[in-house]
Computed example of a mutant assay.
Amino acid sequence: MTFGSDSLFADKANTTPGEFQQQIDLYTPPYLFRESRPKLTDTAPRTVKLGGKATYRTAQALAIAKMRLIRPGSFTHVTNVEQRSIALDFTRTEDGGGVTVTLPKDSSVVPPGWYMLHAVDDRGTPSKAVWVRVPAPKKK
């Protein structure tokens, strides 16, 4: 959902007061109207260390094309300094009923905190999120 506008000034010289745009736009992604979406079980560990692995069961393992960590947003003044989408290496389990993800080792790529884990199928349809916590690396 988006709403509002930059209502401070109506001119480039910033001398004429602006008018706040009173409109709300709702976006519904087309994938919500598809017959099915990938589904990850959230029975895997909720905490995965940097460089660590975790396995998630899914009936759509063969169709999974990407696994991604999405950092939840932290907005202020139209800036979102926390948002990131991180592609994960993954393999399918031997039985074909799941995927195993491997997190990057670098904390500058994956800062500690909570992330939404999504599986994306070969049609570009994402799963609902499974929440994963990445702890801070232990100091040596």
Rank of each mutant, 00 (worst) to 15 (best):
T43H: 08
M67N: 05
Y56C: 04
K53C: 04
A59R: 13
A44H: 01
L40D: 00
A63E: 07
R46C: 11
A54P: 00
Y56V: 06
Y56W: 02
R68N: 09
I64C: 08
I64P: 10
R57S: 13
R68W: 00
L50R: 07
A59H: 02
L62H: 13
K66F: 11
G51A: 06
T41N: 13
R57W: 05
D42P: 06
K49N: 12
I64Q: 06
L62M: 13
K49S: 12
T47L: 10
A61P: 08
K49A: 14
A59N: 09
G52K: 08
K39R: 15
Q60L: 09
A44T: 04
K49D: 13
V48T: 02
T41V: 05
R68F: 00
A63I: 08
T47A: 15
A44M: 03
A54G: 07
K49V: 08
T58K: 09
K49H: 09
A44G: 09
Q60M: 14
L40N: 00
K53W: 08
T47D: 12
K66C: 01
P45G: 00
G51E: 12
T43M: 08
A54N: 04
T55L: 04
D42I: 01
Q60A: 13
Q60P: 03
P45D: 08
R68G: 00
